[in-house]
Design a binder for these strands. Structure first.
Lengths: 340, 340
DNA sequence: TTGTACGCGTTATCAA
DNA sequence: TTGATAACGCGTACAA
């Protein structure tokens, strides 16, 4: 099966390649007659223009890349699903790349932006530490999801879709406090010296304790360098917390997957959720709802955030302004916490 | 920031573009001296060759597309994660596309193969009904994961990585039977008239019942057209099953997500797993392990299957033979089933 | 309204 | 060991 190009079509239709090109792109003016004829031949041969040639010519592409830290996180997957769908709908192409370890997501994006000549980038998860220079080097429209750049960066250089992690974590902790809990554990994530959604949630936890005059006890905070899955990490951290703190009555995990792992650890040690220990998660993934008991959590509007992300990105690709959206999350109370 | 091309590098290095090209591709022979100089300039200008131009020239690309039915299934996500990593490692690019509803995954692959000039395709999930003609039209190396083509298709035309769904489902059902269960429900998926992994698992369920002389009761089989998540689907189906069958003591779900939803339904109706109803799932996703109780399941070696898929695909891309691998799954017993 | 011809950034062929 | 130069498939000034 030989390749059919614009040339083939031109010959078969008895016109020049420019005419075929015009028909394809609805550009210039062509008589209805030839247009019909060309369309006919295109259909007949099932012709599709060569993407590489098009991209080469136009200097850009319809490739959008998504760089996601921890693709295995169901919360991200929920958003990826929506993004994937919407991008396909617009005839663009989504390239997904997972980011792990100490890799800098933006550095990778910069490299890939040139390499794949992307027309846009979405960065999901990671740190708040990206610098102005990086965005300058990136040179393509970019939306950060669940994160933002550091404050020195001109807001016009990128878009972002986030929640107020600190505020929401405060809310979650306050919820536990108001239920009467005083010995509240927190499962955090290393590293601790950079700003991430997790670190902001930790800040919210600390502030809530302060607000209610509960002393911050380092023993109640678990964190470790780890390459484990969120479930396993939560499981291990919770075990440590329980061993160290016999009087702990509640735990707040920085993510639902971690909360689920923590709950499992509680059960595995013969204790009960929520009778012995109350559990609060963060994100609002399906699993938290279907767990037994359902895990109370801070629900992020994932669908809405995903939709806004790609809408904003396409806006920017078409020359529009950048945007910075901060969504509200909702505390869902449903069975993994009790008053004491 | 102006674009730097091979021409820029050639000028700055004082050589011809062909020399730069040769350096980039390690082709032909070049003196160490000029090689060093060119490399130097390339580094300095951070030059990266234009992918579109390369693809245009070579006629192919380094794009591999993954077509997955139900990207939201954690079992697939596990494999996608591995595939994504390995493909990036080889300098290829992964394009992920979700397939939904009545779309034919292979038809989409055929279209995209031309449109994006892919060098390979992976199809994950879907049906066993793909025809010879489709593979001929596809024209690029293709690996089917968790499915196979219909038997009329020449085995040389594609590769596959699967398990024996029927055998494994038989195993799961037999497990319940040997625990003394006789009223065993099955949660199936519509549509029922095509061959899918689910339908084969149903066959295994039916055969096990036959083997042990337990009558097949239609009331014990739940299925419905639905666009719900696996969790929600399992939840709804299980509720129906319980309402219809007061004497049901066990249920086998075609996937772990469905089993989790089913378990939740059991709890939500004030019953217990496994005391009132035993639950068996299929796949071996993390959530099943961390659920309370851990869900017994047929564990598919997802990592291994994913690795084999891309290895096989790269083999084929490099002109190697197609392969058809059938892995063994393992029945994990861990707390969601009891003997009666 | 249509066709000719050039160039996009590469790689590959052929001379030098 | 190198350098011109012709493609690859397409879009688009420019001319007709």
């Amino acid at each position: 099966m030989e390749e059919i190009t614009i040339k083939t079509i031109a010959e078969k239709a008895g016109v020049s390649i420019s005419t075929v090109s015009r028909v394809m792109n609805n550009t210039g003016s062509i008589s209805d007659k030839t247009k019909q004829r060309v369309m006919q031949v295109i259909k007949e041969y099932n012709y599709m223009p060569n993407t590489s040639a098009r991209n080469l010519k136009s200097g850009s592409s319809k490739n959008i890349a998504l760089f996601v830290r921890s693709i295995e996180n169901p919360f991200f997957q929920k958003m990826i699903h929506v993004i994937e769908e919407k991008i396909a709908l617009r005839g663009y192409q989504l390239i997904i790349q997972n980011v792990t370890g100490i890799e800098d997501e933006l550095e990778i994006a910069i490299r890939e932006a040139k390499d794949r000549n992307l027309c846009g980038a979405i960065i999901m998860g990671g740190t708040f530490n990206h610098s102005k220079i990086e965005f300058e080097r990136l040179g393509i429209p970019c939306v950060l999801v669940t994160i933002a750049a550091n404050s020195e960066v001109d807001l016009g250089m990128y878009s972002s879709v986030t929640i107020d992690d600190e505020k929401e974590a405060f809310k979650a902790t306050e919820y536990l406090i108001k239920l009467g809990h005083k010995r509240i554990g927190f499962i955090n994530n290393k590293p601790l010296d950079i700003i991430t959604p997790n670190s902001l949630r930790y800040n919210g936890y600390v502030k809530a304790l302060q607000e209610y005059n509960i002393p911050l006890d380092e023993d109640l905070v678990a964190s470790e360098y780890s390459t484990l899955s969120g479930y396993n990490y939560g499981f291990n951290m919770m075990k440590q917390l329980i061993m160290r703190n016999k009087d702990m009555t509640a735990v707040f995990a920085f993510a639902d997957v971690v909360a689920v792992g923590a709950a499992k650890a509680i059960f595995s040690m013969g204790l009960s959720v929520p009778n012995d220990i109350s559990v609060v998660g963060f994100d609002g993934i399906d699993v938290a709802e279907f767990y037994n008991p359902s895990i109370d959590t801070i629900y992020q509007p994932a669908d809405q955030m995903a939709l806004s992300s790609i809408e904003t990105l396409f806006d920017m690709i078409q020359g529009g302004e950048s945007k910075h959206l901060v969504y509200d999350a909702v505390l869902l109370k449903r069975g993994s916490c009790r008053a004491i």
